[in-house]
Design a protein around this nucleic acid. Structure first.
Lengths: 209, 209
DNA sequence: GAATCAATGTGAGATATCTCACATTCAATG
DNA sequence: CATTGAATGTGAGATATCTCACATTGATTC
């Protein structure tokens, strides 16, 4: 990004704080901002009619939380909310659009974001349709290890309910599978502290159930 | 699109025929082509481990069937195949990329495609997770009426198995729901001929199950 | 038009997952 | 540190959907 672009983007930027649980983007509404996460963590999820939701991904600092349907109607196909207290920076959507149109250097990055999102959707979809509960939980933990906490040991920043929504199943079933995995010494879980003891096995379960 | 762009795109174009059932794109592979459908119909679907698949959308002539993850690794996140005998035109992916980078006029259109795809994914996902079989079948028929055949009366170009995969359920269950809907005079179905008798009711079922 | 194969319809039992109810643990607060 | 409310764990019955088996229909070929 050039200095000029940077200026345009951040000239009248606003910083905002979100409390844990607070909604950031609401599915079905339009937004005039891109929201760049500075600290904390957000979840991006698809809302159903009943008050359930399905978590697509967890977003960490220094990424845009989501991108509205730009060059269309600026609507949001998903909701987002903070999972822990977070701070973010609002970027004007019009400014963002003109930067995208302004230089071809920025297009590949935008397209990559869309690719990523589609890949994520495909994964989540196959998960829910083809895999049993064990495989879905295994998959969720592999996601946490490989793409969220980047370590086999971590402190969960999300609740069991969120974990359930990430795996696309009920909280109760999630608890039961978690107990199974503890029993089989695949995971060590004490409260929010998690250690993946047998990643190979987790991968096997994620694949074959 | 300018004439120059048009020339670049179609200079060494190739036309190809696909038999019904034939695979066009294979999930997990890369492709050097964009494939533009000239006649017939294609299904775009996500493959699971077991030989099941979930249909994301049906593509009709004069649209690109799918777009590989350009500016990334040109991989496909989905598979596609012809549902009836079809003819398509292969467009070189490199040429397409340079056109996208060449003029800002083409960016909004590309971005809209991504937006559409994401919207589609969100819908399909909510469908499978939150809705019961009746609602999913109702939803599938509304999709066929509103976005595929553009009429309350049409001749199905897909099998019951495809219909099941579009609704994300088993072929047998699909048959049973179809019989229910015939019984309740919501649909009139004779072989491949379909008439939606009560669209309001269909919409209600799609919403509330 | 009889024979054969694929597509579709239907019933009943099997199974995975959810729901409800309650027990337990954990965290916050006075 | 006792109390309260929220988050989590667990059991058992309820339920939706699938699977398997078979019947029926439709399409194709000789």
């Amino acid at each position: 990004m050039t200095d000029k672009e940077y200026d345009l983007l951040y000239s009248n930027k606003k910083e905002v704080d979100y409390k844990a649980g607070e909604t950031i983007y609401k599915q079905g509404t339009e937004s005039k901002y891109l929201i760049f996460l500075l600290s904390g963590m957000a979840k991006v999820y698809v809302e159903g009619d009943n008050n359930k939701n399905f978590i697509l991904e967890l977003v960490k600092p220094f990424q845009f939380i989501d991108i509205p349907s730009i060059f269309d109607n600026d609507m949001l196909y998903r909701s987002s909310s903070a999972v822990v207290d977070s701070r973010a920076c609002l970027v004007d959507l019009q400014a963002f659009k003109s930067i995208i149109l302004g230089s071809k250097n920025n297009i590949p990055r935008l397209v990559k974001h869309f690719n990523h999102m589609q890949n994520r959707y495909s994964n989540r979809l196959t998960n829910v349709i083809y895999k049993n509960m064990e495989a879905r939980i295994a998959d969720a933990f592999l996601y946490l290890v490989n793409e969220v906490y980047f370590s086999r040991e971590f402190t969960l920043t999300i609740s069991r309910t969120d974990l359930a929504n990430l795996a696309g199943m009920s909280r109760e079933s999630t608890s039961r599978i978690l107990s199974e995995f503890k029993e089989q010494e695949i995971l060590k879980i004490v409260g929010k502290k998690v250690e993946v003891l047998d990643k190979k096995q987790l991968e096997h379960i994620a694949r074959f159930g």
